[in-house]
Amino acid sequence: MKRKPYDPLKPRITTLLWMLGPAVVMLAVYLIWPIFQTLKLSLYDWNGIDRKAKAIGFGNWVELFHDHIFWLSVKNSFILLLISALVEIPIGLGLAILIFRGGKRFRIFKFGYFFPFLMSTVGISILFKQIFDTNFGLINQVLGILHLSGLEQDWLGNKHLAIYTVALLICWQYIPFYMLLFLAALNGISPDIEEAAAIDGAASWKFTRYIQIPLIRGAMITALLLIVIGSLKYFDLIWVLTNGGPEFSTSVMASYLYTLAFKNYRVGYASTVAGALFFIVFITAISIGRITKRFREV
């Protein structure tokens, strides 16, 4: 047998192993294997403590289909998604254009808008739990001195309102992020285009409407993608703020599976919810990728 000629550009197998090995092993152990383990556990009835778990086939999945709390959690995720997309993108874009136009004069605003990012999500949730408090909360007391007591609410305790309060807080937290994303995109537009438009005497609103906004479509699609995936994975903020309550009215898939696994000791069924979360995120991501690919290419 003829030996292949020695090619110095071709890596040795040992080189490949130490360069790729650690990353691949970490992903295999902490991401890939757990997904299969979750899917396996979803077929068992197990409290997480007993030595033996009872195999029950697709029993958990059947239960999931009839579990109105699960469907409520899915619905809540989509409410958060919809509100986030409809509020964060327009306001983020508006603020980005404002800061762009303000230029140096608005530096101080740009500096201040980032402040929500200096706290952890846990910190934000603990802080706003106080701000939304019915009696001692800043919002209700300020409404009181403005003689708007009629608008005072039990922001987090009212089961019809709580999910919207959560959505409001999510928007507050993430608007600066999308503003900065859009601002970076606006600043990325070539000055030549700006110059050409200026020489042609375009009005500034026309410049924004017909040049800037179309040119940062890519950033808007990125924002939409991040919102969609992020909304389906919500946990920290909701868990600290409401625990998913009252009466599961702010429950999302992640908080529901946490409650099931670590509070109710229904590890098998919690794994079913976790598996469903995985499938929903995956399918959503793929379909969005497909849909937006066309828009990116245009």
């Binding site: 990353a23 992903l27 902490y30 991401l31 890939i32 294997w33 757990p34 997904i35 383990q37 979750t38 556990l41 995936i229 389906l232 994975k233 946990f235 898939m253 992640a254 599976l257 946490y258 696994a261 590890v267 919690a270 794994s271 976790a274 598996g275 979360l277 995985f278 995120v281 995956f282 991501a285």
Partner: peptide, 18 residues
Amino acid sequence: VVAALIVPIHTTLIPIYL
């Protein structure tokens, strides 16, 4: 590796705990 970007942490939570 890129697809792993979208794996939700919570799907892996119970197995990683165990």
